[in-house]
Nucleic acid binder design. Sequence first.
DNA 1: GTATTTTATGCAAACGTTTGCAATTTTCGG
DNA 2: CCGAAAATTGCAAACGTTTGCATAAAATAC
Lengths: 354, 354
Amino acid sequence: MSKRTEKTIVDIAEELKLSVSTVSRALNNHPNISTRTKEKVKKMANKLGYRPNAMAAGLRNNKSRTIGLVVPRISMFFPATISTVIQNKLHEHGYHVLICQSNDSLEQEIALAETLYSTRIDALAVSSTLYTTDFSHFDIFKDNNIPLVFFDRVPKDYKVKVVKGDDYLGGYTVTEHLIEKGCKDIVHISGPLTCSLYTERVAGYKNALRKHKIPFKKSRIFYQELTKENALQACEKIFARPPYPDGVFAANDTTAITILEYCRKKNLRVPEDIKIVGYSNDPRAEIITPSITSVDQFPAIMGERVAKALLELLQQPGAPQRYSEELVPIQLIERASSAAPVSTSKTTVKKKAK
Amino acid sequence: MSKRTEKTIVDIAEELKLSVSTVSRALNNHPNISTRTKEKVKKMANKLGYRPNAMAAGLRNNKSRTIGLVVPRISMFFPATISTVIQNKLHEHGYHVLICQSNDSLEQEIALAETLYSTRIDALAVSSTLYTTDFSHFDIFKDNNIPLVFFDRVPKDYKVKVVKGDDYLGGYTVTEHLIEKGCKDIVHISGPLTCSLYTERVAGYKNALRKHKIPFKKSRIFYQELTKENALQACEKIFARPPYPDGVFAANDTTAITILEYCRKKNLRVPEDIKIVGYSNDPRAEIITPSITSVDQFPAIMGERVAKALLELLQQPGAPQRYSEELVPIQLIERASSAAPVSTSKTTVKKKAK
DNA sequence: GTATTTTATGCAAACGTTTGCAATTTTCGG
DNA sequence: CCGAAAATTGCAAACGTTTGCATAAAATAC
């Protein structure tokens, strides 16, 4: 085991009786260096086991070739998929990605912004906390003209590049779908309104109701963090007494699944007695019985777009960042949980096939 | 928008008519600095919007306060959970975590080792590719005494710190469980043997068979990357002609789920006709019908242990790294897919309840 | 009030690169 | 073979910190 003696370009230079600048340029394929010396240098670099010191280069160039990525958590399907794509894509272009989790804590998000700035990341992509309404902790990046892209959970009144799903359309589509399948009393379990994407889905929900002349009832909408526990609590309220709703639009699949299981326990048949639609098309939605209708948000596409946006901004340093919003399409994936027509109460009780 | 003028400690020093060294020490709470100047300095730092430059500090100190994490992919439940935990834990101690994906490509893994070394990470944790048998691309870290910890997918003959699940016990437990539930002909879908954890599970499988005097048949074991497509191909072979097996031990849950769905299509009843057990306790295993028996590997615990190991090594720089293996326990989670006793062929055909 | 210890601050080098500019060597036209 | 242009290489400063050592200031002892 050799003592920790990192080889540097000066070692190469000494060995070869060249100047460090020549060695540096040779390693970076600078056109002014003859091919002969380039070869010599690279050979020696190999021989000595030289590895460039990214910090030294970064300090000199004032760039780290690292980009930051802040997401609520990487153990959830949707952000995990996006992160994967962004990471792979940027890696192809020689960038590292520092994936950080805010754990949906505003405090942590603020701290992350600070320390990510300290590492002098070249760009930042963020999907914010559920509770972030003030985005000023990202001002440092804007002010210093560091590429900044928000995705999915994006700010409302903060001028910055944005890549998001078409949440209004999503909310509208789901609700209309349920109405078309015969639902007349649709509950919506939404995330907290501090997060703009939920307000948009709610808007879609309301507009679909209005269009189909179904009265909107405040008591039929819930705003909460979309956890299993909260979903169960909502169920307790919803099914405390009749009339039960005949449709549920859950703003994520964890909630949809929880409600489905609750209904099973209550001997409510899905979809005959009540239809359920989720959101995000989590892999679980497909395999549960009955399979759950959901909305595909195409996380891979979103990831691609974010990566592309970042790369474009990185390619044109100094160019002022313009506000722009990019919409990633959504698609309703119809499955069993919202399939059959609603049985008129107590009449046709077809035996469920499989 | 201010021009990009990063404030540095020299700016603070000039403003305060102090030397840079004093400012540096003040910001780092060096004991030799009077509290009065410390306060003054910090105040001014705030006022100027100073943010430390991690690269400069890193260059000087020869440490980056960043640790590397190499996993096959972060979009899979098990590594995602581990990564989450490691990241959060290390972050508490002021470290950044550079999460990288090898995408199960040896080539990418090698490249990652190289570039991670270039960033001068302070430590490295890796769960290797399915196909990594030669680990010499990690020698740089060993040779330079940089903390190196492997987890889950660990090397066989490479002396290094290791945190892994008890895969032998897992294989044994699952197989014995199936036998106890009445299975006499158990197929095992294993990952490729290049990955040591699968060889151990296979060993467990074989030993359980032997102990219970069930002959091992080579034709009943499959070695393949555990994807859905491969699982389907295996199914085609397995169910090409009778006799069909009465038990399947799948080395991950994706495979178990695929087989379950295949059996449903073939009108084979699970668990009456055939029992299925998966591995890793993916969230999907719980919600599918019938729910699938699986093996919990406690990813959160594994993550904790890895983080702890890294931190310990980081705390004692220079100490020679010893080889050591830490076993994380496993637990069989019994569910419906392996529950009921095997129906003797064609006799009692109880209607499956729900 | 001086000598000595303790406390607080400053100087300057170092970390490993990159790069503008100057210097040197090579090439080539005439 | 000379001079000028082109190609190659070298010098030295800079990036923003940290830190060993020296120095200055304050506190303490006598």
